Amino acid sequence: MKTPDTRVSGSPRPLRIVVGVDGSEPSLRAVEWAADEAVLRGASLRLVYASLWERYEGAALAEGLGKPSEEVMAEDVVATAERRARRRQPDLGITTDILPEEAEYCLIRESRGALLMVLGCRGRSGVTEALLGSVSVTVAGHAHCPLIVLRGSHDNQVRPGPAGRIVLGVGEKPADSAAVRFAAEEASLRGAGLEAVRAWRRPLHEPRAHPLIVGQPAHLQETEAAELVEEALATVPDGLRVRRRTVEGFARDALLAVSRDADLLVVGARRRQGHCGLQLGRVAHGVLHHAVCPVAVVPEPA
């Protein structure tokens, strides 16, 4: 398979995929998933564990090692993650690091020098998701590179599933969209098809509308959605299997529905003027919490 172009605007892109690890099985599945992705992209893998153990006063020493027990645990976490990655991809270049920081701040900083970041997420409901999901949501809202979050119910396979499909949520400004480029690149690397989805809503009412043309606004909304899909796909490389879909309803609901048999769902996150970092909208926030398949949140330029 042809190696993808690794340069943007004349400058080399960083060929490193970062994974945040915490010792949980979902994070280890994310390590394996990211190892496959790194091989597809010709990238290296960086495994990062963030903890504030150095700030704890009076930390107990692990028996026989002369180190705080939290440090020993952190070393075990990254060592286990590295073993899983090497079993998956023996020839992959791997680096590890243990950093005395809050996970969110550490991962956001790490995203500056990354081609891609991958996080695993435990559970799909209750307090567990609320606590662990907060890291994913915070990083997704401020990351400088695309972030992929693997839901706890999904397997660790990068290769295309039975549907062989990457789904792209088409945003309001699809021209020159980083999310479109990322989705097309993922589909090409995996040999999967690309499905572009745009939701539209029928107006609730049209003041003073003539009874004979009352259906026209809904038609216009659907037409506009179809035009946005075409605009998004205008720069997709030839030879890629592409499907266009417009769906009546809320964007979040439409994307959650198609995520049931997708290999990856890609959405964009656009920087807002006067705000620090990316600000996740309702759609991106909703699919991060409820999508069945892995979700990629791609930062868009202002």
Rank of each mutant, 00 (worst) to 15 (best):
G141A: 10
V287E: 05
S69Q: 15
P174H: 00
R112Q: 14
L204D: 13
L194A: 01
Q216D: 14
R88A: 03
G66C: 04
S44L: 04
D97A: 11
G113F: 05
E57K: 10
D176F: 10
P4D: 00
S259K: 05
E230P: 09
E172C: 09
R87F: 10
E186R: 05
A192F: 01
R271T: 09
T96W: 02
V197F: 00
K67G: 11
R83T: 07
D238C: 12
G113R: 08
I98N: 06
R198A: 08
S111A: 03
G171P: 01
P100W: 01
T138S: 15
E231K: 11
D76V: 13
M73N: 14
L47G: 05
H210G: 10
E186I: 01
R109L: 09
P299Y: 08
V258G: 00
R208K: 15
E101I: 05
L92F: 06
P4F: 00
P217Y: 09
A30F: 08
V77H: 03
V8W: 14
D76S: 15
V158L: 09
V297A: 04
R41S: 05
H142E: 11
V21N: 07
R252I: 11
P203Y: 04
V283W: 08
R109D: 09
H289M: 14
A196N: 02
A35N: 04
V295C: 10
V242P: 00
A262C: 05
A226T: 09
A192M: 02
H154T: 15
A251V: 00
V8E: 13
D261T: 09
S134D: 04
A284G: 06
M73D: 13
G20E: 01
L40I: 07
W53Q: 15
A35I: 09
V298E: 03
E57N: 10
L116E: 04
R282D: 15
P162M: 08
G23M: 05
L107F: 07
I98E: 00
C276M: 15
D176Q: 13
R190F: 07
P174T: 02
V295G: 08
S136L: 11
E102P: 09
V158D: 04
A74Q: 04
E82M: 12
A178F: 10
T128M: 11
S51D: 04
M117G: 02
R13D: 14
A218I: 08
A79P: 08
Q216S: 14
L92K: 07
L212Y: 11
G268T: 07
S27M: 04
R88Q: 04
E101P: 12
T6L: 14
P299M: 04
R282K: 15
A254P: 03
A85G: 03
V39G: 10
